[in-house]
Amino acid sequence: MEKITQLCADIVKLWSKYGGSYLTGMRNTLVLALIATAIGCVIGFICGILNTIPCTDRDPLPKRVLLRLIRIIVRVYVEVFRGTPMVLQAVFVYYGLPYFTDNAVKFTNIWVAAILVVSINTGAYMAESVRGGIISIDPGQTEGAKAIGMTHVQTMLHVILPQALRNIMPQIGNNFIINVKDTSVMFIIGFPDFFAAHRAAVGASYLYFPSATVEMAGYLCMTLIASFLLRWVEKKMDGSSNYELVQEDQLTMTAGTYNHPDKGTPFDEHSKEFRNRTEQELKFGRTRGDR
């Protein structure tokens, strides 16, 4: 018990002294994760789309060669960035650029370097998720779009990608949460994130465990809020499970032009009986007539 009170006291002490730097660290972590996930998604979508361009032996040779080349490049990119640790990629990019250019070109802004590394890393994972999302859509959707004369680009843009995006939302959320946590390795190139705040605080106070507790709670808070928001976004995307039956002909309902000639007759579509009858017909079919 007294250990717990001790811990609480230490945390209060840490927070009063370094609270500001913890908070800016949290903000930086979230901003970096958000921007990098967004850019990563864009990279992933581009790669995923390029990877699923259909290629038949009826296409002209240059097109086939180009598509083959694109697929190889995307494949190499995915394998390299998925297969090496992000902490090393950061070092490799951050120190590699000045090394090869004799310090002529280097990252003057640590944000640019961090966003670049995390984005291309996320992009490598997303490329495969997007590809999976696209091939998970029923081929019938593509055929339906083709049958009304849509080109491949139109089919993708209006039919396949909106559905694929919905299917890979959980993956995007996954990547965002991973990025919130994994941007902690960016301290290696001196990025001032939440974990860097911990290193600064313990360097001065030697309160390793209390600071780690703050970090644990902080990261968990961020990821929990993120999951909650993502679920909410997914729900929004699904839309309402209800729909309105439209009884009136909407085209004739333009304000002022609609007269009501059947008023008072059995065919008055605004009357209760008429609506009930239409509803009954929809449910049970017409009693007489076309069936």
């Binding site: 019938g140 959707q141 339906g144 779009a145 049958a147 004369g149 849509m150 039919v159 919905r166 729909y243």
Partner: peptide, 21 residues
């Protein structure tokens, strides 16, 4: 695609676009 836009098709499995009304 231009040819297909003149020749409509109705499928056994409907193939309506699920993301649209």
């Amino acid at each position: 695609p231009a040819y297909r836009s003149h020749v409509g098709m109705v499928f056994q499995s409907f193939n309506l676009f699920n993301n649209m009304t």
